[in-house]
C-alpha cells in the first residue's frame, strides 16, 4: 500500500515537473510546480515527516507560490485567453471534483470512531496522520522531538534565520519600490 502510494505520487510529481519545465506559459509552469509541491508533501507524510509536510504546503505551496503568481501577473507575461469550449468542459468537471472531495471528507470524518480525546501534548499533524490509521501512540511525540532538536541543538541557526528573513524583507522592499529616476 505504502509503495503503491509512493509510486503514484512519484509518477505525478515527475510528470508535473516535466510539464513545468516544458510549458511555455509561466502561469501554467507555476501551477504545475504547485502540483509537485503537494506531491512532495504527501511523500513527506510517507516518510513520517508530518511537520515538514504541513510546512511544505503552508510555505511552499502557499506563501512562495502565491508570491510567484503575483509577480507573474504583475509582469503580465502572455496570459492566454481561456477557450470557451474548454471552460464549458471544465465547469462540470470542477463541480464533480468539489462534490467528490466534500463527500470524501464527510466519509473520512464519519468513519473515524477511534479519536475519543486528543492525546496530551499532540498537535494537528499527528492527529491528522492518526486519522489515516498509520500512526500509533509511539509516534505521538514526533513533532515534539523535531521541536526539541530545533530549539536546542539548532537554536543559533534558528535565531540567525530570523535575521535573514528580516534582511530579505528589507531587501525586497528596497529593490521593488518605485524609483522616479528609474530609466
Amino acid at each position: 500500500m505504502e509503495f503503491l502510494i509512493f509510486s503514484a505520487v512519484a509518477a505525478i510529481a515527475i510528470a508535473a515537473g516535466l510539464l513545468m519545465v516544458l510549458q511555455r506559459n509561466a502561469m501554467y509552469s507555476a501551477l504545475f510546480l504547485v502540483v509537485v509541491f503537494f506531491c512532495l508533501a504527501v511523500i513527506y507524510i510517507l516518510l513520517g515527516a508530518y511537520f515538514l509536510a504541513v510546512v511544505q504546503v503552508a510555505v511552499y505551496a502557499g506563501a512562495i507560490m502565491v508570491l510567484m503568481l503575483f509577480v507573474i501577473m504583475l509582469l503580465n507575461v502572455a496570459w492566454p485567453e481561456p477557450d470557451d469550449r474548454v471552460l464549458g468542459l471544465l465547469r462540470p468537471l470542477g463541480a464533480t471534483a468539489a462534490v467528490t472531495f466534500a463527500m470524501l471528507m464527510a466519509w473520512a470524518l464519519a468513519g473515524t470512531p477511534g479519536l475519543p480525546s486528543p492525546l496530551p501534548g499532540t498537535s494537528l499533524p499527528v492527529g491528522a496522520a492518526m486519522t489515516l490509521g498509520r500512526v500509533g501512540e509511539a509516534q505521538a511525540g514526533h513533532v515534539q522531538e523535531v521541536a526539541v532538536t530545533l530549539f536546542s541543538k539548532y537554536l543559533l541557526p534558528f535565531e540567525l534565520v530570523s535575521i535573514l528573513l528580516l534582511a530579505a524583507i528589507l531587501g525586497a522592499s528596497v529593490l521593488a519600490r518605485k524609483r522616479p529616476d528609474h530609466a
Binding site: 515527516a49 511537520f51 515538514l52 510546512v55 511544505q56 510555505v59 511552499y60 506563501a63 512562495i64 508570491l67 510567484m68 523535531v146 532538536t149 530545533l150 541543538k153 539548532y154 541557526p157 534558528f158 534565520v161 535573514l164 528573513l165 534582511a167 530579505a168 524583507i169 531587501g171 525586497a172 529593490l175
Partner: peptide
Amino acid sequence: QVIVFFVMAVAAAEVAV
C-alpha cells in the same frame, strides 16, 4: 528534517529578494 526546515526558510528569503 531540521535542516530541511532551514532550507525552506532560506528559500523563502531567496524568493522574496
